[in-house]
Write a protein that binds this DNA or RNA. Structure first.
Lengths: 192, 192, 192, 192
DNA sequence: GATGAATGAGGTTTCATTCAT
DNA sequence: TATGAATGAAACCTCATTCAT
């Protein structure tokens, strides 16, 4: 991937993440990437495709960042907490990933639904891994429906992060929200 | 409110809920309401205002429907479960309310943000009431951060419902997802 | 058909006829019709459809004008000569009809081919009628392949007219060309 | 002319002939020639010039092919018939020549009109030769306006060939059309 | 109140042309 | 010679909004 292509995809992710698909114009992307409008079309079929590429891009970065966290020797609940912390930071300037995993994009771009389903599957992968680790360590309940629970945890976490961003809560409120989320979540999955 | 106005607002809610703000045209709304395009403008300043009115409308219907549920003599966890069931049904054809409460609209219409904050506050009200009831009944943990937890529960529930709708999961998958959600939630808030 | 629609279709025919499909922009048509760009789209699906409508329009005018000529009491060769004269005048400011009948549009707009075939069939109708009249009158050869010959005559005539227009021949040259055409044609079809 | 230049001009003729001037992109030509887009510009000033060169190229090939046919010892009407047969075959994959001679290009590229007039003059040359031969042989009418008639014959022939190609008639229909054309033409020019 | 024809800014996409390598 | 990434003007089309009836 040449540097121009990277610039374009990054700019696209930034724009789409900030104001959404419809409100982002190809002109915006081109300007943000510092290239001419036509140049953007060298790296995508059309706007929808550009969006999908941007999402894919960000998701890969996120998955990579998360997979470094999973160390079988650490307690799983600790890892999960750390993941949560990172999610918040990540969503800070990459809201696209959260939108994807939370399902907010499917209604928007019905055409890319298929592509998104696949990405979403990748996205929950590491939560599944941590849950399984936790069960092996005996710290999480053995009878969890792992894939479903993983999805739920991920949603809780990401929606919380998005909500904080979108509704511009005060830091104190965000802190309370997160604490409540994790009390709920950890209590919920812990073995008794 | 004359019958035409009601028709317009209902049509608006239906359209916006089905395909979103940007993809709904004023023509669509007029057609769905069975009036001419100009007529729509008799009942709103502009598209954004129409949207906000539609959201408000639906939220009031929802809040009303929920408040009938809270009966101090029933166990709070039972009420909560019933609420969940209703949410899913409600979101089925009124996704706007869910979008509002989950924060998905704030990014979309920055101009109406303050209006939404207010509505959201109203929206959690009944969850707060049930949590407080449950604590009094001794079935929920006494040290819950009630407002924050209420918000989290509501998010979990609504995002789950939205996700099911948007991503067109199979009924079996939806069922699993919901079961996981409520195992997590009830375990999380129950007193030990 | 309201007056605006008529203005739009007329303007379209004028523009398309003068500079062709691709070189005519929707802005040109709007300007020529004295309306805004969006207005043009009130009366057509898209550019291609506008073109097809314009062609259809002109063809009907042409067919109407021709059908008044056919009077069974006049000698057929005289009628044919008169038709030729009219064709030239007609093509003068309605080249679309000639382009259609000569097949020049099919390569241009493959999507409308079907529509054009039908129109073309209508277009030759009156030449067929004159040939049949001439055979009954005994002035044309009885063994003519009437439909095929009609088409050929029409092509000769229209291509000649177009050529004169397009290549901007001098009047004298045009006159010679037409005389040659009709010597050929009338000799060719006359009974011996 | 190096082999690259030949490849470019041939590719251009093929593309322009198949889909027309406007619908052929410089990318198409480059791809068809198997070179990069920039390379095409080494052999032409711009798109219009490339088109004119391609036309010129094909016309020369055509004129050469036709001139071998004229043998004073053969009957002129036979030669003419043979020419017709060749025209059809030639137009099959070189429609540019036909378009040029029939005047279809003048409207398209007003800028090259004078260049085309000259080429067209060359193009009729061999028909003129055959007509003159036929008159000398006594098989064609002595009072023909030779240049004008030559042009008319050429038009009839080429438009017929083009029409067959463009409108995708069945072989049977094409055959009928051609027979009608030549009955008309030969009857028309034959001395009585 | 109600209508719907008309508007035109704004968005997406194409493609002839250039130029540094 | 040859390349192909980059450009940006220009084209098509949409739709929120207005206003005369």
């Amino acid at each position: 991937m040449g540097t121009t292509q990277i610039a374009v995809l990054d700019a696209a992710a930034r724009c789409f993440g900030r104001v959404g698909f419809k409100k982002t114009s190809m002109d915006d992307v081109a300007a943000a990437a510092g290239v001419a409008k036509g140049t953007v079309y060298l790296y995508c079929e059309n706007k929808q495709d550009l969006f999908a590429q941007a999402v894919e891009n960000e998701l890969h970065a996120w998955v990579d960042s998360m997979s470094t966290l999973i160390d079988p020797k650490r307690p799983a609940d600790e890892i999960l907490t750390e993941m949560a912390r990172r999610d918040v930071a990540f969503v800070e300037d990459r809201p696209l990933v959260a939108d994807l995993l939370v399902g907010a994009l499917d209604g928007l771009l019905p055409g890319s639904r298929h592509r998104f389903v696949e990405l979403r599957r990748k996205g929950v992968g590491h939560v599944v891994a941590v849950l399984e680790l936790g069960i092996r360590q005996g710290v999480f309940a053995a009878d969890l429906d792992v894939p479903a629970t993983a999805r739920v945890l991920q949603e809780m976490q990401l929606v919380g992060a998005l909500l904080a961003r979108r509704t511009q809560l005060s830091t104190a409120q965000v802190r309370r929200h997160q604490r409540a989320t994790w009390q709920l979540a950890l209590n919920g999955i812990r073995g008794r």
